[in-house]
């Protein structure tokens, strides 16, 4: 078996006295599609922030390709191919849609204006290339978030609830897109509440409840797991 692309080892994150993540360990293999689920406030987004470096970790290790990255600033991690999208779309407001992608491409990806156009076309945003983000609809904004993440040429892409608020057909469209991206060699971690999307996409599921990993394995088994059901449905 080859070494995992991403290793999270005994990661703990405390905010003051509150333990947001408690010794979480998980691995993501090269080329894998991992789904990360858990109730609201369970620590999923904190985990993403810790892996991408937006917040410092309290203890534990994060490795990308066996190299420790938990001390690196976020921009170094992005340049190494660890890219995340933001849960609430946060476009660069004064830049056009195309230039939003260009920033990611210049600093983390491989610059070429062809691929900006291709990416926009892939997500159906090609007509909006010269527009400003505030002219986009909510759905287009999500697509921009995804397009910008792709423009950073990720090896490991973490998509944080990119589908919330989308229609049935749009969810399918995005899942299809992520599957194609995965086929092209990108490892993807999907954080999502829409179970239909998670189940269609993931090869493996990890469930986090109250800052702890409670399940990790085959999607069907995880969703049938007693801990997971309890967390989602209550007693």
């Amino acid at each position: 078996m080859t070494a995992p692309l991403l290793t999270v080892d005994q990661l703990t994150k405390r905010f003051g006295g509150f333990v947001a993540l408690d010794q979480v360990s998980l691995q993501v293999a090269q080329g894998e599609r991992l789904g990360l689920i858990g109730p609201n406030g369970s620590g999923k987004s904190t985990l993403v922030n810790c892996i991408s470096g937006t917040v410092p970790i309290s203890s534990g290790r994060v490795l990308l390709d066996r190299e420790r990255i938990d001390r690196l600033p976020p921009h170094r991690r992005a340049q190494l191919g660890l890219v995340r999208s933001f849960q609430l779309p946060r476009p660069f407001g004064s830049l056009t849609i195309a230039d939003n992608l260009k920033v990611a491409m210049l600093y983390a990806g491989k610059p070429s204006s062809d691929s900006i156009h291709d990416l926009l076309a892939l997500l159906g945003l090609e007509d909006k290339a010269g527009r400003l983000p505030r002219e986009l609809t909510q759905i287009e904004m999500r697509k921009l978030e995804l397009a910008r993440a792709m423009a950073a040429n990720p090896r490991l892409l973490i998509v944080d609830e990119v589908m919330a608020g989308l229609s049935h057909a749009e969810v399918d469209e995005i899942v299809e897109l992520l599957l194609r991206l995965n086929e092209a060699g990108v490892t993807i971690v999907m954080i999502e509440h829409i179970m239909r999307a998670v189940m269609a996409f993931s090869q493996r599921l990890v469930c986090i409840v109250a800052g702890r990993k409670v399940a990790d394995g085959d999607p069907r088994e995880v969703t049938g797991d007693a801990h997971v059901l309890k967390a989602y449905l209550g007693e």
Binding site: H75, A78, L95, A152
Partner: peptide, 15 residues
């Protein structure tokens, strides 16, 4: 420009 608009996001995209 990325810094001006959203520094944290800029950093996350390699700036």
């Amino acid at each position: 420009a990325a810094i001006r608009d959203d520094e944290l996001v800029g950093e996350a995209y390699g700036v």
